[in-house]
């Protein structure tokens, strides 16, 4: 697979179909990868694709200068299923011209959540690691551990229905169609069963961890505003302290800003340095949108986004009167 990917990328660069290819390379830590930007054919050999390829690289596509530095005419990008769906989001929202992006899909078997791995090792440092399809083998200073891969996959991957780029220009291998998932919203349904007091306590507890570093926002493909509301200071919309009263507003507004746009790539969850459960609220909003508007983000370039369209027979029961 990886050889085919590298060959394909070399070919694209050689034929000048693209100026740059965004992909993943080996990271400097065990179980990590790092974004690489390939401009020379020979550098394509640095590309990898495996369960460590965590980042959603599409975040580098937006024209905002904070990402990728320069602008390129033609960009190739290697994508998992969720990543491909973010590109659809960009196309729908007119952030990119899809003609200028060559989408290279790779077959995704799920991505590893390092935080879950560290729970298994009881936070002991991992020094060596090997992933072999079904299992992850870990070595630390005083332990040797083999754990089933499925126990340490990202929550997003465990409920992913589109692991292989639903939209792509090139696919390495053969894409699977949609995967059947029965309990996609299980975490939300369980959460909804709790009393409002319990839910509030949980959310409060989680959001009080936040250090306002904005890694979640900055890795997120859906967060591409040139000026985020948290950065505006005239007027200043929200307090900047890490107090839960301030950070909760940041998170709830961000939840709404990504409503119907979040593709559940899980990039925010993995990026958070303090392990906040960012997924529960995003998934809740996704579920609402699915139920009310039968809309799933990032599948169809021609479909009108849920939050940017209106039809008369929409459910209106949330309007109290």
């Amino acid at each position: 697979m990886i050889q085919n990917l590298r060959t394909e990328v070399k070919k694209l660069l050689k034929d000048k179909k693209v100026d740059i290819v965004l992909g993943w390379g080996k990271g400097s830590l065990p179980l990590s990868s790092t974004p690489v930007f390939i401009q020379k054919e020979e550098d394509a050999d640095r590309l990898i694709f495996d369960e460590t390829c965590r980042n959603n690289l599409t975040t580098y596509l937006t024209k905002d200068k904070r990402k990728l530095g320069k602008t390129y005419d033609k960009i190739g990008i290697i994508v998992k299923g969720c990543d491909a769906r973010s590109i659809v989001l960009y196309a729908v929202e007119k952030q990119i011209n899809k003609e200028n992006v060559v989408i290279i899909g790779v077959p995704c078997n799920g991505i590893l959540e390092k935080k879950k791995v560290l729970q298994k090792t009881e936070n002991k440092e991992i020094l060596e690691s090997k992933i072999d399809g079904k299992n992850v083998h870990l070595k630390g200073r005083d332990f040797d551990l083999t754990i089933p891969l499925k126990d340490v996959l990202c929550d997003s991957c465990l409920t992913c229905r589109y692991p292989d780029a639903p939209v792509h220009d090139i696919f390495i291998g053969k894409p699977r169609k949609k995967v059947d998932i029965k309990d996609e919203f299980k975490n939300v349904i369980d959460f909804e069963k709790k009393s409002s007091q319990e839910r509030w306590e949980y959310i409060k507890e989680e959001y009080s961890k936040c250090i306002r570093c904005y890694a979640c926002r900055n890795v997120c493909p859906a967060c591409y505003c040139n000026e985020c509301f948290v950065d505006q200071n005239d007027p200043q919309w929200i307090g900047k302290t890490p107090e839960v009263t301030d950070s909760i507003i940041f998170h709830l507004i961000r939840n709404l800003h990504v409503a119907g746009r979040c593709v559940d790539c899980g990039a925010c969850v993995s990026a958070c340095p303090v392990d906040l459960d960012l997924r529960i609220m995003n998934k809740k909003v996704e579920k609402e949108i699915k139920e009310r508007f039968d809309y799933t983000a990032g599948l169809d370039v021609n479909e009108k986004p849920a939050m940017a369209s209106y039809c008369e027979n929409e459910k209106q029961d949330f309007i109290m009167g």
């Binding site: 930007f37 580098y60 904070r66 570093c213 904005y214 890694a215 200043q236 307090g239 900047k240």
Partner: peptide, 29 residues
């Protein structure tokens, strides 16, 4: 710097966990 900086997404994770980073902002509430 092109090479070093390209992949940075400009969050504040590194600075906020760093024991020596010390830039601050002053805000009136």
């Amino acid at each position: 710097w092109d090479e070093i900086a390209a992949k940075c997404i400009n969050c504040g994770a590194c600075a906020f966990v760093c024991p020596t980073c010390h830039c601050f902002d002053v805000s009136d509430e």
